[in-house]
């Protein structure tokens, strides 16, 4: 029965063509919808991070402009009182003044940690240099720098993101790597900057659960990806760690 066989062939061919078209459309829809979802998530993360930075910046300004100024004022008055007071009282007042100086240092460090104003004022390169020096002073970590000339200009959001990633990665070196030296490099291209933080410490197993959350890697990744950049973590047990963040110099609208 040739008619029946032709119908079978036609149906088979129609089914085959339908399968190809439907599968192609299905896969395209999956890819496109996932890309749209990721773009929305990144934009949302970007807004959250920007709001967080803004709030931190406000608190840091208040610390610097109000609290520190008042501490300085109180110290000046105490020093003046100490100069006029009897020796025993003067000695105690100078002691209080010294404690206030320490409080000032603590507040200044907290303000710097809350918002890296150095990135905006002195530029990313100088701010990274200061960050390295701070880790040397505070934690005895020798940070070997490989930075471009200080005149490098990057968008503020990119500068803050790079600084934050460097800060978190160096903090991880201090806490987990078990070494007292690390490398911090910044490479500037026409369209992107690449930040690398490496150590030769104990590394870790990337497949181990809770590693991402525990090391602040999620925050670093989100911060970089929110600006359209790429974050790559290279680590293995006993083989050190390499954090690479590539950030576009043109900010996403």
């Amino acid at each position: 029965m040739p008619g029946r066989e032709l119908t079978v062939w036609t149906l088979f061919l129609a089914a085959a063509v339908s399968v190809v078209i439907l599968l192609a459309a299905f896969l395209a829809a999956l890819v496109l919808s996932q890309r749209r979802r990721l773009a929305l998530e990144r934009a949302h993360t970007g807004r959250l991070l920007a709001a967080q930075e803004e709030e931190r910046s406000r608190v840091a300004r208040e610390l610097h402009d109000d609290a520190l100024q008042q501490v300085a004022l109180i110290r000046t008055e105490l020093d003046a009182l100490a100069a006029e007071a009897e020796p025993a009282l003067g000695h105690r007042l100078r002691g209080v003044s010294g404690e206030l100086e320490e409080l000032g240092t603590v507040l200044r460090t907290a303000a710097r940690s809350l918002h890296p104003s150095a990135v905006e004022k002195a530029g990313l390169v100088r701010a990274l240099g200061e960050l390295a020096a701070e880790f040397g002073r505070a934690h005895g970590l020798e940070v070997r720098l490989d930075l471009p000339p200080a005149g490098l200009v990057v968008p503020p959001a990119v500068g803050v993101a790079a600084y934050r990633v460097a800060q978190e990665a160096l903090r991880n070196v201090v806490r987990h790597a078990g070494v007292n030296a690390a490398d911090l490099g910044l490479e500037a291209g026409e369209r992107k900057v690449t930040l690398r933080i490496a150590d030769r410490g104990r590394g870790f197993d990337q497949a181990a659960p809770a590693v991402e959350a525990g090391l602040g890697l999620v925050a670093m990744r989100q911060r970089v990806e929110a600006l359209g950049g790429h974050f790559v973590l290279g680590a293995r047990p006993g083989g050190g760690t390499l954090v690479t963040a590539t950030l576009p110099l043109a900010e996403k609208p």
Binding site: M1, R4, E5, V8, W9, F12
Partner: peptide
């Protein structure tokens, strides 16, 4: 489809 066409066509 194969079983329907194998012997007929």
């Amino acid at each position: 489809a194969s079983s329907l066409l194998l012997h007929g066509n």
